[in-house]
Amino acid sequence: MARDGPNWEGLLKWSLAHSDGTRPTNTLSEDDKRWLKEALQAQSFDVIKRMKEITLVMKIPEKDLESQGITPDNIEDLLDELQEHVESIDNANDLNTIGGLAPLIEYLKNPHANIRAKAADVLTTIVQNNPVSQKLVMEARGLEHLIANFTNDDDINVRIKALGAISSLIRHNKLGTHAFRLANGYGALREALGSENVRFQR
Results as ranks from 00 to 15, higher is better:
96 N>I: 09
98 I>H: 04
106 E>M: 10
102 A>G: 01
42 A>R: 13
46 D>R: 12
54 I>K: 07
55 T>M: 02
100 G>L: 05
43 Q>N: 10
52 K>C: 10
58 M>C: 11
60 I>S: 02
99 G>W: 00
105 I>C: 08
107 Y>R: 00
95 L>H: 02
88 S>A: 13
116 R>F: 07
77 D>N: 05
79 L>F: 06
115 I>E: 07
112 H>P: 01
75 I>R: 13
81 E>L: 03
97 T>E: 15
47 V>L: 07
99 G>K: 05
93 N>G: 15
64 D>L: 14
117 A>C: 06
84 E>K: 02
109 K>W: 08
47 V>R: 03
76 E>G: 04
108 L>A: 06
90 D>F: 13
75 I>M: 14
102 A>L: 10
67 S>L: 13
53 E>P: 02
45 F>S: 14
93 N>H: 05
72 P>H: 11
93 N>V: 08
73 D>W: 02
98 I>E: 03
97 T>W: 12
42 A>G: 12
64 D>R: 12
75 I>P: 03
94 D>Q: 13
58 M>A: 13
58 M>T: 04
55 T>F: 02
69 G>I: 00
79 L>R: 03
107 Y>G: 01
112 H>G: 10
103 P>C: 11
108 L>T: 02
86 V>K: 01
48 I>G: 05
108 L>M: 09
73 D>F: 05
56 L>D: 12
50 R>E: 15
62 E>Q: 15
61 P>R: 05
84 E>H: 01
99 G>S: 12
62 E>I: 15
50 R>A: 12
104 L>K: 01
88 S>I: 10
67 S>G: 02
72 P>E: 14
66 E>P: 07
113 A>P: 05
70 I>Q: 11
70 I>T: 11
111 P>G: 15
105 I>R: 03
59 K>R: 11
116 R>W: 04
